[in-house]
Simulated scan of single mutants.
Amino acid sequence: MKRSGPLLTLLTGLLLALFMLSLNATTETGSSSYGGDAPDTAASSPTKGTAKGTPKPSAKPTRSPAAKPPSKGEYAGRTDDDTSAVSISVRDGKAIAYYCDGRDTESWLKGNVEDDGSMRLTGKHGAKLDGQITGKKVRGTVDVDKATRKFTADKAVKPSGLYRATTEVRGAKVDGGWIVLPDGRQVGILKRDGKPAKAPRIDPGTGTVQVDGDVVTARPVTP
C-alpha cells in the first residue's frame, strides 16, 4: 500500500498532462479554422485608384476641315445702300472686280484670293475691295473716291456677270463696263474718250450693244 501511493500520483500527473495537451491542440485548431474563414481584407478592400475612380482621357473634338472656296465663279450684287453695283470674277486664286454706280463713277480692281476665300483687291486712285467668299456669296466692303460701302454679291449664272468692251467707234476710243445682276438688271458706264456716261443696254445672250449706231460686242471678264 505504501508503494502504490507514488505510482498513483505519477499516473494522475500524466493524465493531467495529456488532457492539457489535448485541450491546447483543440484550441489551436479552432483558431486556425476561424482564421481560414476570415475574409481577405486586403483583397476585398478597394484600392485608392478604384475609390477615387481612374479618370479617362477626354476625347478631343475633331474639327472638320473648312470647305475651300470654288476655284472659279462669277458674283454680282448691290451695295447695301443700293447706290452701286459690284461684280467679281474668280479664277484659280485670282480675282477681278468692277464697281459701278451707273452714272459717272467706276473702278476696276484685281488681286489674289486666299485659300480661306478672303480677297484684297486694289485699283487706281487708291480704290480697294476687301471680300470673303462664303458659300454662294461674296460679302465685303469697297472703297472708291474716299467712300466706303458694304456689299453682297451673289453667285451669278450666265448670262449674269461681268462684261467689258474696249474698241474705237467713229474715231472715239470706247471703253464700257457692264454688270448684269441675277435679277436681270444692268448697271454700267460707257466712256467715250475718257468721258463717262450711263452705258446702253447690252444683250446678255450675245454681248452685243449699240454704240453711236455701231454694234459693239462686250465679252465676259475673267482674271
Rank of each mutant, 00 (worst) to 15 (best):
R3V: 06
S4Q: 07
P6R: 11
A17K: 04
L18D: 12
F19Q: 14
F19L: 14
M20L: 15
A25S: 14
A25K: 07
S32V: 10
S33K: 11
Y34A: 15
G36Y: 09
G36F: 09
D37N: 12
P39D: 10
D40F: 01
D40M: 03
A43E: 13
S45F: 09
S45L: 09
A51Q: 12
G53T: 08
P55W: 03
P55C: 04
K56F: 02
P57A: 13
P57E: 10
P57S: 07
S58D: 10
S58N: 05
A59E: 15
K60N: 13
K60S: 14
K60E: 15
S64K: 12
A66G: 13
K68S: 14
K68D: 08
P70T: 11
S71C: 02
E74G: 05
Y75F: 15
G77C: 04
D80M: 11
D82S: 12
S87L: 01
I88Y: 03
I88E: 04
S89D: 10
S89R: 03
S89W: 00
V90H: 00
K94L: 10
K94R: 15
A95M: 07
A95F: 07
I96K: 08
A97H: 01
Y98K: 01
C100T: 15
D101E: 06
T105R: 10
E106C: 01
S107N: 08
L109Q: 04
D115V: 01
D115K: 04
D116L: 01
G117K: 04
G117Y: 01
R120E: 08
R120M: 08
K124W: 06
Q132M: 10
V138P: 02
V138M: 07
T141M: 06
D145G: 07
K146G: 06
R149F: 02
F151L: 07
K158H: 09
Y163R: 05
A165T: 05
T167E: 12
V169S: 10
V169M: 08
A172S: 15
K173D: 15
K173G: 12
D175A: 14
L181Y: 07
G184I: 06
G184E: 04
R185I: 00
I189P: 05
K191P: 01
D193T: 07
P196N: 09
R201I: 09
R201A: 15
V211L: 09
A218T: 10
R219Y: 09
V221N: 01
T222F: 04
P223Y: 05
P223K: 05
